[in-house]
Design a binder for these strands. Structure first.
Length: 832
RNA sequence: GCGAACGUGGCGGAAUUGGUAGACGCGCUGGUCUCAGGUGCCAGUGGGUAACACUGUGGGGGUUCGAGUCCCCCCGUUCGCACCA
């Protein structure tokens, strides 16, 4: 007497929804809108694992509930389908990346459909579709026309294994973050986007958004705005955030790449400087900054001296790689007393350390970076850091020796890649070197067919192989392609008018739907994707093409789902059916040897993947959906336990059995019009469940809402009869979580139309109150008993009842009562 | 190294934000239905005890009538950032 037949019910309703186009986006514009968006996936060859649907399930619950609450909901799914894995597979197999991509998309889509997610599939899009990337190219032209795209010969991160350059953000520890392939510096001509021009607005406009705290910080840190001053030490201009410490400036340091190093170095120091620069040149900037913190300082004296503009002392000029060429002016003045890096350097090379801010211990031993009254600083003496900064900047400006300056860590965005499977740039170069845009009416510039997806022998990108395609209007087409970020920078806009081939999006529709009300995805995109998309959006806003300053009003990161992985001594991963626990230790079944366990990200290579299809087949889509949200708070990372799905399935079976006799598959009379409505416990559980689910849709706390629905079903199971009206209210709040079962129940209750657009039930606060209050009784802060009182009992009566309680009495005997505390509706504390 | 978050039963997690710790689920134990059960139902389940007392939210201190919640110190885990002047 198990439960419902999930296989047939899931299939029945998924077909019904398709046939009736239940989730087609509404076209009337009188109702309020709600745009809920998932970060769309890259359709990899591995298919989905149970981690993917966690966020999708959450947004589906929100979308379904919002529909019932009377909103027009835009709920869509698409594919971030340009990218490296398909191209690499193409290189190996010779299959066209588009074929691989289409196949992967079909797999993903089938898996998502099995979960009963309420997407409007008529709006599906893929970034690698020419009908889509036509508009990506069009937006690039907007950027270009606004002077935000330019070409530059710059040192770039080149990855020989991939044959392409990478963005700074994609390189860590001198390796490509995705594959670990080594990356080296090369001078190449690249397309850049002037994101730095938007740095300030990208910081400031964060203020009006509803985003996780950590993500604001990640964005701000990445942009790294700092306010300071440019100061001239003779011909060297330095940037500093501590101009107040200029009196303690005892030397100047140039980045090894700084243009003045050659000019300033004295003949005696020439060899030493040249050797040092060569040594540094071998290491990428990324390496230099990553090893950073504790690495011993290195550097060489140039032999030159400059004058400190405030002390008018001659101080030495050094070159050292702890100063970065690409930040500020590539030169700093060093105040070793009040900067840890300068201090370490000064100690190593015996440079003088002069204290100018009081407050630390011995500055000869340790730098003091805090606030304090200035000393040894002439007209700054006695001032705090901030006051000293203001005063010195004014002083410098008066004398033309410096000025206030704002700097950012953020660099311009390196926007070209030497790959095949990406958007071609809509550009061509004329013989005279001029670069022109392909006219709008000739977009898209479609990817040409080529016979091999590798760079050419002379290092040209793969597109250079398309000999027939290259010539264009007397010039040559650009052979770089855009990075994968490009397509995801604006897909939320294309969803608004996905099939319109006249415009990228309809302006009126954009005004209605934007901004995205709720955007859900992993926090691995907390910096880059969000920064890039916000940047494009602001450019489009400036161009008058969109109506909002920011694209994503509310952002939520779902936590990752982990699963234990097992590795034997040789480092080989084992499936969970190949291991077992003996005496509390995990061993390989076959060899009996111990294995190492680790809670890991799910991935094919770690053999710890759980496939949602298997869960749907065994427990049904609804149980799977419920478990995804019941596991814990949505934002937390948790370990997958398949037994938990069995638990949510049992809950659904219990709900089903309230209505259906599973022996005969007929309705039972427990749920009826005539059931008595005086079951206060059941009614309270119902209203509590409605309340919590309603709140959950707002604050994304689904786990406790599901718990309260379970309480209702447990209560209803105990009851001999359940009023039909109550049961229907319950089924409505259950339906966003378990839509297949809810539709089936709804139909069996005699309804002809889908539950999808039924009005959301309201809860009644009065029904949540209890008939009797159970008041805890403490004596001296320790719980000693409980008394039941009526909700309208007077405080004095309650305290009297508390003191009279059999369990409480012994603790009061022979003691003087010092104080009595009553907390309304909760407890009494008697202090003796 | 810096910053942030967190630390609650065998496990995932609740706790009205200073007011009866452990909701709900998993697991486990016992009973019951069943030819049988990897099903359903009933009961139990922080430790401890025959039962009470007692004890219990990483450890130590503090504020308070009352602390998982607030403050200080320490330990641990996770995640960011990492020479950006």
């Amino acid at each position: 007497m198990a439960g419902f037949d999930h296989a047939s019910i899931d299939a029945k309703w998924q077909e019904t929804w398709d046939r009736e186009q239940t989730f087609l986006t509404p076209t009337d514009r009188t109702r309020p809108k709600y745009y809920v968006l998932d970060m769309f996936p890259y359709p990899s060859g591995d298919g989905l694992h149970v981690g993917h649907p966690k966020g999708y399930t959450a947004t589906d619950v929100v979308a379904r509930a919002k529909r019932m609450m009377g909103f027009n909901v835009l709920r869509v799914m698409g594919w971030d389908s340009f990218g490296l894995p398909a191209e690499r597979r193409a290189e190996r197999t010779g299959e066209h990346p588009s074929v691989i991509t289409e196949r992967n998309i079909a797999t993903f889509k089938k898996q998502l459909k099995k979960l009963g997610l309420s997407y409007d599939w008529s709006r599906e899009l893929a970034t690698s579709d020419p009908r889509y990337y036509k508009w990506t190219q069009w937006i690039f032209e907007v950027l270009h026309k606004r002077g935000l795209a330019y070409q530059a010969e710059i040192p770039v991160n080149f990855c020989p294994a991939l044959g392409t350059v990478l963005a700074n953000e994609e390189v860590h520890d001198g390796k490509y973050i995705e594959t670990g392939d080594p990356v080296e510096k090369r001078l190449m001509k690249q397309w850049m986007l002037r994101i730095t021009e938007y740095a300030d607005r990208l910081v400031e406009d964060l203020d009006g958004l509803d985003w996780p705290q950590g993500t604001y910080k990640a964005q701000r840190d990445w942009i790294g705005k700092s306010i300071g001053a440019n100061v001239k030490f003779d011909q060297i201009e330095v940037f500093t955030t501590r101009p107040d410490t200029l009196f303690g400036g005892t030397y100047v340091v140039l980045a090894p790449e700084h243009a003045l190093v050659d000019a300033l170095t004295t003949p005696e120091q020439r060899d030493a400087v040249a050797a040092y620069r060569e040594q540094v040149g071998k290491r990428s900037e990324r390496d230099r900054t990553t090893e950073a913190a504790d690495a011993p300082k290195t550097g060489v004296f140039t032999g030159a001296y400059v004058v400190n503009p405030v002390t008018e002392q001659r101080i030495p000029v050094w070159t050292a790689d702890y100063v970065l060429a690409t930040y500020g002016t590539g030169a700093v003045f060093a105040c070793p007393a009040h900067d840890e890096r300068d201090h370490a350097f000064a100690k190593k090379f015996g440079l003088p350390i002069i204290e100018v801010v009081k407050g630390g211990a011995d500055v000869q031993a340790e730098a003091y970076t805090g606030d304090g009254p200035h000393v040894n600083s002439g007209f700054l003496d006695g001032l705090s850091n901030d006051a000293a900064k203001t005063k010195i900047i004014a002083w410098l400006e008066e004398r033309g020796r410096g000025s206030q300056s704002v700097r950012y860590k953020l660099r311009d965005w390196l926007f070209s890649r030497q790959r095949y499977w990406g958007e071609p740039f809509p550009m061509y170069e004329l013989p005279d070197g001029r670069v022109e845009l392909v006219p709008e009416n000739e977009l898209p510039v479609a990817l040409p067919q080529i016979d091999e997806y590798k760079p050419t022998r002379d290092g040209q990108p793969p597109l250079a192989r398309a000999k027939d395609w290259l010539p264009y209007k007397g010039g040559t087409r650009e052979t770089n392609t855009m990075p994968q970020w490009a397509g995801s920078c604006w897909y939320y806009l294309r969803f608004i008018s996905p099939t319109n081939d006249q415009v990228a999006w309809d302006r009126d529709e954009e005004k209605y739907w934007m901004p995205v009300d709720l955007y859900v995805g992993g926090n691995e995109h907390a910096t880059l994707h969000l920064l890039y998309a916000r940047f494009w959006h602001k450019v489009l806003f400036d161009a008058g093409l969109v109506s909002t300053k920011e694209p994503f009003q509310r952002l939520f990161h779902q936590g990752m789902i982990h699963k234990t992985s097992f590795r034997d001594g040789a480092g080989k991963y084992l499936h969970d059916h190949e291991v077992e626990q003996r005496d509390g230790k995990w061993v390989a079944k076959e060899t009996g040897l111990p294995v190492e366990t680790k809670l890991d990200k799910m991935s094919k290579s770690r053999y710890n993947v759980v496939n949602p299809d298997d869960m749907c087949n065994e427990y049904g889509a609804d149980a799977m959906r419920l478990y995804e949200l019941f596991m814990g708070p949505l934002e937390d990372g948790v370990e997958w336990e398949t037994s938990g799905v069995a638990g949510t399935r049992r809950f659904l079976d219990r709900a089903w059995r309230l209505l259906v006799d599973t022996e005969t598959d007929t309705l039972i009379s427990k749920v009826s019009e005539s059931a008595p409505t005086d079951n206060r416990d059941l009614e309270r559980a119902l209203h509590q469940a409605i309340k919590r689910v309603t709140q959950a849709v707002g604050d994304m706390r689904f786990n406790t809402a599901i718990a309260d629905m379970m309480v209702f079903v447990n209560e209803a199971t105990k009851a001999t009869a359940v009023p039909r009206a109550w049961f229907e209210m319950f089924v409505k709040v259950l339906s966003p979580f378990a839509p297949h079962l809810a539709e089936e129940i709804w139909q069996r209750l005699g309804h002809q139309t889908s539950i999808t657009y039924q009005p959301w039930p309201a809860f009644d606060e009065a029904k949540l109150a209890k008939d009797v209050m159970v008041i805890g009784v403490q004596v001296g802060g320790k719980l000693r008993g409980q008394v039941e009182v009526s909700p309208d009992a007077a405080e004095a009566d309650i305290i009297a009842a508390a003191k009279a309680d059999e369990k409480v009495k012994p603790f009061l005997e022979g003691k003087a009562i010092k104080r009595e505390v009553y907390v309304k509706g909760r407890l009494v504390n008697i202090v003796v």
